[in-house]
């Protein structure tokens, strides 16, 4: 157990009496975000119109990929990235996995789901099982298809490559936090002739996805998946709120850039953002 007195010695005094150092702006920003999203959710619940989400080709392609695998009689591989269960990208992958598993259950197509993280494996096992149940095909669920490979990155990589070479999936869906293994997976997927869909926010890996995958979801697109797939107006409200704030941040960047050009030493916006 941590001793608060020990922490107190290192802790700077509170800002405005209650906030931790440098957390006023994040608090205000976060609160404003919650308010905007709450308003949009309320509008959606009241049946009032809220903006539509634009078409996301990568998510539309999921149906195409599963359909192709069904026609070819080959499995679908779904990788949720190698991030922890607390990683937002992994959480975004859960919604897509649920959808993919349900579709696979309906079309009686084998879904191979591989995991590097043991918590992610536990959650994914439950998601796949539940999706087969929701699709009315609990008997088709095969526990051996949701696989924990290894906690080590390259051991996981080797395991998945082996699976792809042996079981030759017709669709390879890589949705989550990916790192150096991205290129290897995509090229092996290409060798086995799989249609490939990638999604990540890890900017170092995005060029690889763009280059080697058939469809790529870039950055925030992957977080719109649950709203896009479920078509729930309430969830759509959160995505619209996300977009409103992106415009707000863009405006702040423009204002900050202008102020910086006027007086690089005394930019009031930069001072507020760094001090609070």
């Amino acid at each position: 157990m941590l001793n608060p007195l020990m922490i107190l010695a290192d802790l700077p005094p509170p800002t405005w009496g209650i906030f931790a150092e440098g957390q006023v702006i994040p608090f205000l920003f976060g609160t404003a975000f919650v308010v905007v999203v709450y308003v949009l959710i309320s509008r959606a619940r009241a049946g009032e119109p809220i903006p539509e989400i634009r078409k996301i080709a990568g998510l539309d392609a999921v149906d195409e990929a599963i359909g192709r695998a069904t026609e070819m009689g080959r499995p679908v591989h779904f990788g949720p990235g190698i991030g922890a269960v607390s990683n937002a990208q992994t959480i975004a992958a859960f919604a897509v996995l649920g959808y993919v598993a349900k579709m696979c259950a309906q079309y009686d197509t084998q879904l191979i789901q591989t995991n590097r993280n043991i918590y992610v494996y536990a959650v994914n096992e439950e998601i796949v099982k539940q999706s087969y149940l929701e699709a009315g095909r609990p008997d088709a669920y095969n526990p051996d298809d949701v696989r924990y490979i290894s906690g080590f990155q390259w051991a996981y990589c080797a395991g998945v490559l082996g699976i792809m070479e042996r079981e030759k999936p017709a669709a390879n869906i890589m949705y989550g936090s990916w790192f150096a293994e991205t290129m290897i997976f995509l090229e092996v997927g290409n060798i086995v002739g799989a249609i490939q869909i990638g999604a990540t926010t890890n900017t170092a890996q995005l060029p690889f996805f763009i280059a080697a995958a058939d469809y790529t979801l870039i950055g925030e697109e992957m977080f719109a998946a649950s709203a896009y797939i479920s078509k729930e107006p309430v969830l759509r409200g959160t995505v619209v709120g996300q977009d409103i704030f992106r415009i707000l941040i863009f405006a702040i960047i423009i204002i900050g850039t202008i102020l910086q050009q006027i007086d690089p030493e005394e930019n009031p916006l930069a001072r507020i953002l760094t001090e609070f």
């Binding site: 976060g30 897509v96 649920g98 998601i127 539940q130 926010t201 309430v234 969830l235």
Partner: peptide, 26 residues
């Protein structure tokens, strides 16, 4: 992406997104 993180966190804290509990239903 960071805004996406925030929106996802909010959906989960408010219980709007339940994909991690099984299925993909909201």
């Amino acid at each position: 992406a960071r805004l996406g993180f925030m929106a996802t966190a909010m959906r989960i804290i408010l219980g709007l997104e339940r994909a991690h509990l099984g299925g993909y239903g909201a």
